Amino acid sequence: MEIRTATDDDWPHIYRFYSQIMSQGTSYAYPETQTLEEARPWWMEQPPGRTVVAVEEGEILGSAKMGPNRPGRGSHVATASFLVDPARRSKGVGRALGEHVVDWSREEGFRGIQFNAVVETNDSAVRLWKSLGFEIIGTVPEAFDHPEHGLVGLHVMYLAL
């Protein structure tokens, strides 16, 4: 599996699973019915951020976006978001993207990585981030309206680099 910087030509391929994941409403508090062009700025990061794709045999399996969590005096802490094509889950794509983000954040000189909103019922994501060394440092109760579970918490997770 190759992880490389996403190009403008990759966006329609990312959008195919981006729109599917957002319409499920179980892991992101993003608008659920965005068009291709409306969704682009929500995912395709501009410098100093970066968007990458995980590719195998020419097919995009997943994507991650990363960059500073806050501007100015908070820019020494990174953040990131991840998408794995639902048809490609449980094949190590999320782990590969997570490891890439951790390595990139270290190389770029960030002091840590903060995930601001990991849905507490997203067990696979919570398990993955913990296995990569992230800790839950707090949970905002009832901050996410899950379509199946109702109001659930959003974890704030952190990894010191």
Rank of each mutant, 00 (worst) to 15 (best):
residue 40 R to D: 09
residue 96 A to N: 11
residue 124 S to P: 03
residue 111 R to C: 08
residue 129 W to S: 04
residue 75 S to Y: 14
residue 89 R to P: 01
residue 37 E to W: 02
residue 74 G to A: 10
residue 107 E to M: 12
residue 123 D to G: 15
residue 125 A to N: 08
residue 88 R to F: 15
residue 124 S to M: 01
residue 33 T to R: 08
residue 30 Y to R: 13
residue 111 R to I: 06
residue 34 Q to T: 02
residue 105 S to V: 05
residue 35 T to H: 09
residue 82 F to A: 13
residue 57 E to L: 00
residue 41 P to D: 11
residue 130 K to G: 02
residue 104 W to T: 03
residue 92 G to S: 06
residue 42 W to V: 02
residue 52 V to P: 02
residue 106 R to S: 12
residue 44 M to E: 12
residue 92 G to M: 13
residue 107 E to R: 14
residue 132 L to A: 13
residue 117 A to W: 09
residue 66 M to H: 05
residue 118 V to H: 14
residue 34 Q to F: 00
residue 134 F to Q: 08
residue 108 E to H: 07
residue 76 H to Q: 09
residue 118 V to I: 15
residue 126 V to C: 13
residue 67 G to R: 11
residue 92 G to C: 09
residue 109 G to I: 11
residue 66 M to F: 14
residue 37 E to K: 01
residue 55 V to I: 10
residue 32 E to R: 07
residue 91 K to T: 10
residue 106 R to W: 13
residue 107 E to I: 03
residue 87 A to D: 13
residue 113 I to P: 02
residue 101 V to K: 01
residue 63 S to H: 08
residue 132 L to K: 14
residue 85 D to W: 07
residue 82 F to G: 06
residue 111 R to S: 10
residue 115 F to Q: 01
residue 48 P to L: 08
residue 44 M to S: 14
residue 130 K to H: 12
residue 43 W to A: 05
residue 69 N to C: 09
residue 52 V to I: 12
residue 53 V to N: 12
residue 116 N to Y: 11
residue 72 G to Y: 02
residue 129 W to C: 07
residue 126 V to S: 05
residue 38 E to L: 01
residue 48 P to C: 07
residue 42 W to R: 06
residue 91 K to E: 10
residue 63 S to W: 09
residue 72 G to A: 05
residue 93 V to C: 11
residue 76 H to C: 11
residue 41 P to F: 09
residue 31 P to W: 00
residue 79 T to C: 06
residue 135 E to Y: 06
residue 73 R to L: 09
residue 128 L to A: 04
residue 107 E to F: 04
residue 64 A to T: 03
residue 112 G to C: 11
residue 39 A to D: 03
residue 49 G to M: 11
residue 31 P to H: 04
residue 46 Q to S: 12
residue 45 E to G: 00
residue 94 G to H: 03
residue 88 R to I: 11
residue 93 V to I: 13
residue 88 R to N: 15
residue 138 G to C: 04
residue 96 A to T: 11
residue 50 R to G: 02
